[in-house]
Measured scan of single mutants.
Amino acid sequence: MDVFMKGLSKAKEGVVAAAEKTKQGVAEAAGKTKEGVLYVGSKTKEGVVHGVATVAEKTKEQVTNVGGAVVTGVTAVAQKTVEGAGSIAAATGFVKKDQLGKNEEGAPQEGILEDMPVDPDNEAYEMPSEEGYQDYEPEA
């Protein structure tokens, strides 16, 4: 019985440690998101679009440190934060509304985080759909 109880105690310690790591990862992701939003706020009209992409990228980098179902929630929060940063930029006159959601080359930025393969159960990952990809044929 002692062996059984000791095993359960060790398992509990492992769960607590994993929860603490997840909590730490979420806190880091939130900190990076805040950094990115402050970065966007300090940019001029020309830099705002690039700044919004930076927020998304920093958040995406930190999301990889967070495991399990938390990833889905962090990704949703990050996307809403990026959308909010863009709205703030438009409201303050840093950028025109028609410039939001495009990178410096004018290509749409939507789907940055949505296409990231995420499995809350950590069982399997699927690649994003290939609808947006084109076949590449090298020139002879």
Results as ranks from 00 to 15, higher is better:
135 D>K: 05
98 D>E: 11
135 D>N: 13
38 L>D: 01
83 E>Q: 10
118 V>L: 08
84 G>K: 12
10 K>F: 05
80 K>V: 08
94 F>M: 02
16 V>R: 11
80 K>G: 04
53 A>E: 07
51 G>Y: 11
21 K>G: 00
71 V>Y: 04
5 M>P: 00
4 F>A: 00
33 T>L: 06
113 L>H: 11
42 S>L: 11
87 S>L: 15
72 T>Q: 12
100 L>I: 05
27 A>G: 04
85 A>Q: 02
122 N>G: 02
29 A>D: 00
29 A>V: 08
44 T>V: 10
52 V>H: 01
8 L>D: 00
136 Y>C: 07
19 A>H: 05
65 N>Y: 07
69 A>R: 09
124 A>G: 09
9 S>A: 04
52 V>S: 02
96 K>F: 14
65 N>Q: 10
95 V>Y: 15
117 P>S: 05
9 S>M: 15
7 G>P: 01
86 G>D: 04
84 G>C: 13
10 K>G: 01
28 E>V: 10
28 E>R: 09
41 G>K: 02
99 Q>M: 11
25 G>S: 12
35 E>N: 14
16 V>M: 15
56 A>W: 14
136 Y>T: 05
60 K>L: 10
78 A>C: 07
105 E>C: 03
9 S>W: 15
133 Y>K: 03
65 N>F: 12
3 V>H: 03
83 E>G: 06
13 E>D: 08
91 A>S: 04
109 Q>I: 11
67 G>L: 12
9 S>C: 09
46 E>Y: 06
59 T>W: 14
1 M>R: 00
64 T>I: 14
11 A>P: 00
68 G>D: 07
118 V>G: 09
13 E>W: 04
6 K>D: 03
45 K>L: 13
29 A>H: 02
10 K>W: 04
96 K>V: 12
12 K>N: 01
51 G>P: 01
113 L>A: 12
74 V>Q: 01
43 K>H: 04
135 D>I: 10
56 A>L: 11
137 E>T: 05
3 V>C: 02
46 E>D: 12
38 L>G: 02
93 G>N: 04
32 K>V: 11
76 A>W: 14
57 E>M: 05
4 F>Q: 00
103 N>G: 06
41 G>E: 01
81 T>F: 13
113 L>S: 10
140 A>R: 11
131 E>N: 09
135 D>H: 08
50 H>V: 03
1 M>W: 00
69 A>K: 09
91 A>F: 11
92 T>S: 10
24 Q>C: 03
31 G>L: 11
74 V>C: 11
90 A>G: 02
68 G>F: 01
87 S>G: 14
90 A>C: 15
130 E>L: 10
50 H>D: 06
98 D>H: 08
27 A>C: 12
138 P>R: 05
132 G>R: 13
89 A>T: 07
121 D>H: 11
4 F>T: 00
37 V>W: 15
77 V>H: 01
106 G>T: 07
96 K>Q: 07
123 E>A: 05
89 A>C: 13
10 K>T: 05
82 V>K: 07
61 E>F: 05
11 A>I: 15
47 G>R: 10
15 V>C: 06
79 Q>W: 05
71 V>W: 15
98 D>C: 14
23 K>A: 04
70 V>F: 03
4 F>S: 00
46 E>A: 10
82 V>L: 12
17 A>F: 11
55 V>T: 02
78 A>L: 14
62 Q>T: 11
43 K>A: 08
128 P>K: 05
34 K>Q: 01
65 N>I: 13
126 E>K: 09
108 P>M: 11
107 A>N: 12
121 D>A: 10
105 E>H: 01
29 A>N: 01
26 V>W: 15
3 V>W: 02
28 E>I: 05
106 G>M: 07
20 E>I: 13
97 K>L: 11
84 G>S: 11
95 V>T: 10
87 S>I: 15
19 A>Q: 01
138 P>I: 04
60 K>S: 04
81 T>H: 03
21 K>T: 06
42 S>M: 12
103 N>P: 11
113 L>K: 10
40 V>K: 01
7 G>A: 04
56 A>V: 14
136 Y>G: 06
93 G>H: 06
73 G>E: 03
96 K>C: 15
91 A>N: 06
110 E>W: 04
20 E>N: 11
73 G>L: 13
90 A>W: 14
130 E>R: 05
120 P>S: 10
82 V>S: 04
49 V>I: 11
36 G>Y: 12
102 K>P: 15
35 E>S: 07
11 A>S: 02
24 Q>W: 07
104 E>L: 06
72 T>F: 14
57 E>Q: 06
98 D>L: 14
108 P>C: 10
91 A>W: 12
87 S>M: 14
31 G>V: 03
140 A>V: 12
23 K>W: 15
56 A>I: 14
136 Y>K: 09
51 G>R: 08
16 V>Y: 15
99 Q>C: 09
6 K>W: 02
14 G>V: 14
70 V>N: 01
38 L>S: 03
75 T>P: 01
88 I>T: 03
17 A>N: 11
130 E>S: 04
115 D>F: 11
126 E>M: 06
13 E>C: 08
113 L>E: 15
131 E>G: 04
117 P>Y: 05
25 G>M: 10
46 E>R: 07
15 V>P: 00
129 S>N: 04
2 D>Y: 08
29 A>M: 14
112 I>C: 05
109 Q>A: 02
80 K>Y: 05
3 V>I: 03
133 Y>E: 11
38 L>P: 00
86 G>A: 09
61 E>S: 06
20 E>T: 07
50 H>F: 13
55 V>W: 15
9 S>K: 12
54 T>L: 15
37 V>D: 00
91 A>R: 06
68 G>Y: 11
98 D>Q: 06
9 S>V: 08
21 K>I: 12
49 V>W: 13
73 G>Y: 06
10 K>C: 02
126 E>S: 05
123 E>Y: 11
2 D>Q: 13
113 L>N: 01
117 P>I: 05
19 A>T: 02
72 T>W: 06
104 E>G: 09
140 A>I: 06
94 F>G: 04
55 V>I: 13
120 P>E: 06
118 V>N: 13
17 A>C: 07
55 V>L: 14
58 K>C: 06
117 P>K: 08
100 L>E: 08
69 A>Q: 09
49 V>C: 14
38 L>K: 09
120 P>K: 08
26 V>N: 00
118 V>Q: 02
44 T>R: 01
20 E>P: 00
127 M>I: 12
30 A>G: 01
54 T>N: 11
49 V>N: 02
93 G>W: 11
115 D>R: 05
89 A>G: 05
127 M>T: 04
21 K>C: 03
129 S>K: 04
47 G>I: 08
63 V>Q: 01
120 P>G: 10
116 M>E: 13
132 G>S: 04
71 V>C: 04
89 A>K: 02
104 E>S: 09
9 S>D: 03
68 G>H: 08
54 T>M: 15
33 T>C: 02
78 A>W: 15
65 N>D: 05
138 P>G: 13
30 A>M: 15
46 E>L: 03
112 I>D: 05
1 M>Y: 00
28 E>L: 07
5 M>K: 09
136 Y>I: 09
8 L>T: 00
43 K>V: 13
115 D>H: 11
121 D>S: 11
14 G>R: 11
16 V>C: 12
134 Q>D: 06
124 A>E: 10
113 L>T: 08
53 A>P: 01
6 K>L: 04
31 G>M: 15
133 Y>M: 10
135 D>C: 06
27 A>S: 05
124 A>M: 11
43 K>D: 00
74 V>P: 01
63 V>C: 05
134 Q>F: 09
38 L>R: 10
110 E>H: 03
85 A>K: 03
22 T>D: 00
103 N>H: 07
86 G>Y: 13
132 G>F: 14
96 K>H: 09
77 V>F: 09
60 K>F: 08
114 E>W: 12
3 V>L: 05
135 D>E: 13
58 K>P: 01
37 V>F: 07
13 E>F: 06
117 P>L: 05
81 T>I: 09
4 F>E: 00
112 I>K: 04
108 P>Y: 10
42 S>V: 08
120 P>A: 09
79 Q>A: 08
